[in-house]
């Protein structure tokens, strides 16, 4: 599996097909039993998570996983935990708050008291605070109202346009393929299909299994 600079690549598959495990292998909270992970021309298989985060990899985890009893501002600052450039952090803080004005309004509120959509914004903004070059998103549409899902994917595209490479794991194959340039399909931990978004949308097997056609 490979993801090139500037791409949006999606990883599709049913429940328990190994999508989340793949993502955790990328961020480093799961070590692969076999195989290796490479990033920016370096093998990072044995790097711990903080080293990967410092190298520009960030994750918006499944079910958001914001810190419920930290304020919005504290949550965002946790995103910037590995950074020490105070002035730049403040600038980034302003930037993500402009991007998600709701977070600015609620900056002193505890994360756990916000709605699902707001929490998703917070999780994304938090990931951005580490200034990632490579952003992994695990099920960004999960549990969100359709209108919010749409917004979410627009945001993903916008981020991609600022130069961030994006790797998105999704159950909602149609939505994901709409913004992705390429995709992989996992089944029981194996890649069973791969190709450009267009070819996957056309693939009859794909249509039957994941697109409901």
């Amino acid at each position: 599996m490979e993801i090139r600079r500037g791409e949006i690549v999606c990883l599709l598959g049913g429940n328990a097909s190994g999508k989340s495990t793949t993502m955790k292998t990328v961020i480093g909270s799961v070590r692969p039993a076999k195989g290796s992970v490479w990033y920016d021309g370096q093998e990072i298989t044995n790097w711990n998570t903080s080293r990967r985060v410092a190298a520009g990899i960030a994750i918006v985890p499944e079910a958001r996983r914001i810190f419920p009893r930290l304020t919005v501002l504290e949550n965002l600052m946790m995103g910037a935990f590995i950074r020490n450039d105070k002035a730049e952090i403040d600038a980034d803080l302003d930037r993500v708050m402009d991007m998600f004005p709701r977070l600015k309004e609620r900056r002193a509120q505890k994360g756990g008291t916000m709605s699902g959509g707001e929490q998703q914004m917070l999780a994304m903004a938090r990931a951005l605070m580490s200034r990632p070059r490579f952003l992994c998103m695990d099920e960004p549409s999960m549990g969100l109202a359709p209108v919010l899902v749409e917004q979410q994917f627009e945001t993903i595209q916008q981020l991609n346009q600022t130069g961030i490479t994006i790797f998105v794991v999704e159950q909602n194959a149609r939505m994901a393929l709409a913004i992705a340039s390429r995709g992989y399909v996992l089944q029981s931990g194996r890649v069973v299909l791969a190709g450009t978004a267009g070819s996957l949308l056309e693939n009859p097997q794909m249509q039957r299994a994941y697109l409901g056609i």
Partner: peptide, 8 residues
């Protein structure tokens, strides 16, 4: 786990 995602 989420804390490790932050690089903590």
């Amino acid at each position: 786990e989420a804390a490790t995602f932050m690089g903590i």
